[in-house]
C-alpha cells in the first residue's frame, strides 16, 4: 500500500491528472466497485491443475449529475441512470434509462414534455491502462427509444400583421402517447478519481429513426434526444456523470 501511494505521489502529473484537468469542471466523487472473481474448475484427470483467474467483470452504476442540476435550475426534472458492464476484453455493455419533465418555452408555445427513455448499447474502450489504473476512453453505439406526453399550457397566435401581438391563450391540451426511436454514436471518457469512483463525460451524436405523428402539433422535444430540429433528424447531447461500483 505504501509503495503504491509513493508511486502515485511521485507520478502526480500522470495521465490521470491531465485527464482531470483537461476534461472535467466538477470534482466531487466517491466510488464503490464490484469485482467478480471466478476460478475455473480444474481437470480431475490431469495431474497439474492450472488455476485460471478470469478477468474481473466490472459493473458500474452511474447517474447524470450535470443534467440533474441543470434541470433543477430551469424548473424541470431530469433523472438519468446507467449501468455498464465489461463483458468481454475491452467491450462494455451499456444500459441507460431516464425520466424527464421538461418545460419548453419559445414565446409562441409553452409546454411540458413528460416521459422516459431507455437505451441499450455496446462500447469499446480505446485506452490501455497502466498497472492498477482504471480509466476509459470509449466509443460506442446505442439504440434508444422514448415514450412521452406533451402538455401544452399556453400558445400565442402568430399574426405578423397585427399592431399588438395577440395575447397568449391558456389551453391545457395534452398530446398523449408519443414515441420516438433513435440510434446514437457516442464517445465517452471515464476516469477513476478516488478509489472505485468514476467521473465521466460523454458526447452523443443521435439520429432519429422514427417518431409518431400528432394531429395539429409536432414532435419538438424528446426525452433523451433533446430538441428536434424541424428540418433534420440529427441530434446532439452531452452528459457529465458520476458512477460508482458497489462491492460486496
Amino acid at each position: 500500500m505504501r509503495q503504491k501511494t509513493a508511486y502515485l505521489y511521485q507520478n502526480f502529473f500522470t495521465v490521470k491528472t491531465i485527464f482531470i484537468h483537461k476534461y472535467f469542471v466538477f470534482f466531487i466523487f466517491y466510488t464503490l466497485s464490484i469485482h467478480f472473481f471466478a476460478q475455473q474448475k480444474t481437470d480431475s484427470i490431469a495431474k497439474d491443475s492450472i488455476v485460471k483467474v478470469k478477468q474481473p467483470v466490472k459493473i458500474r452504476f452511474g447517474f447524470d449529475t450535470g443534467k440533474y442540476v441543470w434541470a433543477k435550475l430551469q424548473n424541470s426534472v431530469s433523472y438519468d441512470f446507467y449501468v455498464d458492464a465489461n463483458f468481454y476484453k475491452e467491450f462494455y455493455l451499456l444500459l441507460a434509462g431516464g425520466y424527464e419533465k421538461h418545460l419548453s418555452d419559445n414565446k409562441l408555445l409553452n409546454y411540458h414534455t413528460t416521459g422516459s427513455y431507455y437505451k441499450i448499447g455496446i462500447m469499446y474502450n480505446l485506452y490501455r491502462n497502466w498497472l492498477d489504473m482504471d480509466n476509459d476512453i470509449c466509443i460506442g453505439t446505442n439504440y434508444a427509444f422514448a415514450r412521452f406526453d406533451y402538455l401544452l399550457h399556453t400558445y400565442r397566435i402568430n399574426q405578423p400583421g397585427a399592431i399588438f401581438t395577440p395575447e397568449p391563450v391558456v389551453v391545457e391540451q395534452t398530446f398523449d402517447s408519443n414515441s420516438a426511436q433513435w440510434v446514437e454514436l457516442f464517445a465517452r471518457v471515464q476516469v477513476e478519481t478516488f478509489k472505485h469512483l468514476y467521473l465521466g463525460y460523454d458526447v452523443e451524436l443521435k439520429y432519429l429513426i422514427h417518431h409518431s405523428n400528432i394531429e395539429n402539433f409536432t414532435i419538438m422535444y424528446i426525452p433523451g434526444f433533446f430538441n428536434k430540429n424541424t428540418y433534420s433528424r440529427f441530434g446532439f447531447g452531452m452528459q457529465y456523470f458520476i458512477s460508482y461500483r458497489i462491492t460486496f
Binding site: Q159, A187, T230, Y231
Partner: peptide
C-alpha cells in the same frame, strides 16, 4: 466521429418561413 459531428451540426435554422395568420 469528427466528420459526423460536423455533418450533423449543419442543420437548417429553425425560423418561420411557412405560413402565418393571413390578414
Amino acid at each position: 466521429f469528427l466528420i459526423l459531428s460536423v455533418i450533423s451540426a449543419c442543420q437548417k435554422d429553425d425560423i418561420c418561413t411557412a405560413g402565418t395568420t393571413p390578414d
